[in-house]
């Protein structure tokens, strides 16, 4: 039952991506429209029909996506815009009720996950569909507008939208290749595994440091959790959910400290024409350091 429902949900995602791919092909002003369209259509096929394809074929399609990205053939291009005046008028009409679909989505997702046997993933799907129907009923949006906004949103997400899944995939490849075992062996030569506090400090600080270097906590999470989080904290008895959740937010402390996270720390400098290029990071540094220490304490006391 759950598996079948999930196949339907993934097929729906496949349709969203096919819509984005079709529109990306049609965007004549985008010099990379063939690459971008191919990117979305490959994903559409994997999501809609992946269950009926051999896995090596899916692997090959991912390598094609990697090649498209390598040669800069995936770009968002121009998207349909929101009419600001109409949005302002709609804002007057709906007021705070326009947040209702978002609230319904969160509540339905959690209720399905908690009170039915369908689980969290199906819950997200049911929540999203319920919320979409609600917003359509509320606004009486014509089908054409639903289509336009769907393709606008999916295309605007672009290649970064698939990055979390690719990073999780990389984590699985690391596991299959035994990377975690090897790094654990290497670090164990320097620091002893078995001390809970040493493990927690090592994991949280490594998450923050690697995030600073890479500028991306998601990427650091896949690597550092396999290499340090599992052998030094979870294998020592740390509760996996607590360790993983706090590990990720420890990484965010690194995001607050690094010019590598350009979206968060350099974009506002440019947007606001600030004189000090490190001005945002300087305001964030005290909080980042306090929160890192707090999170080390939280992980140590809550996970064991």
């Amino acid at each position: 039952m759950v598996d079948n429902l999930l196949i339907v949900l993934y097929a729906l995602i496949g349709i969203l991506m096919a819509v984005a791919g079709t529109e990306a092909f049609k965007a004549k002003d985008n010099p990379t429209r063939y690459g971008t369209g191919t990117f979305w259509w490959l994903l559409a096929l994997i999501f809609a029909l992946g269950n009926f394809m051999p896995h090596w074929l899916i692997g090959a399609m991912i390598i094609v996506i990697g090649a498209l990205a390598l040669f800069k053939q995936i770009q968002v291009g121009k998207l349909p815009q929101i009419d600001d005046e109409k949005a302002e008028a709609a804002a007057k009409q709906f007021g705070w009720r326009i947040f209702l679909p978002s609230i319904v989505m969160a509540v339905v997702s959690i209720c399905v996950a908690q009170f039915t046997a369908l689980g969290g993933q199906v819950g997200i799907g049911i929540g999203a569909i319920t919320a979409l129907l609600l917003v359509i009923v509320m606004t009486k949006a014509p089908a054409k507008m639903v289509y336009t906004d769907t393709q606008r949103m999916v295309r605007s997400v672009g290649a970064p939208g698939i990055l979390p899944q690719l990073l999780a995939t990389l984590g699985a490849v690391f596991t299959a290749a035994g990377v975690g075992d090897l790094t654990a062996k290497l670090i164990a030569g320097i620091l002893p595994a078995g001390n809970h506090l040493v493990g927690v400090v090592l994991y949280c600080v490594a998450m923050a440091l690697f995030t600073m270097i890479m500028g991306n906590a998601f990427a650091a999470f896949a690597v550092i959790t396999a290499a340090i989080g599992i052998p030094f904290v979870i294998a020592q008895g740390g509760e996996p959910a607590t360790v993983a959740a706090i590990g990720m937010t420890a990484g965010y402390c690194g995001t607050l400290l690094t010019p590598m996270a350009a979206n968060f720390n350099s974009l506002p400098v440019a947007l606001q024409e600030m004189e000090d290029p490190m001005g945002v990071i300087k305001q964030q540094a005290p909080i980042a350091i306090i929160l890192l220490v707090v999170q080390i304490a939280l992980m140590y006391f809550l996970a064991f």
Binding site: K86, I98, P101, S102, I124, L132, A141, V157, G161
Partner: peptide, 13 residues
């Protein structure tokens, strides 16, 4: 990705 159509419409309104 399933949440995107709803968010897109809410933004428009």
């Amino acid at each position: 990705f399933l949440t995107l159509p709803m968010i897109g419409l809410a933004e428009r309104y």
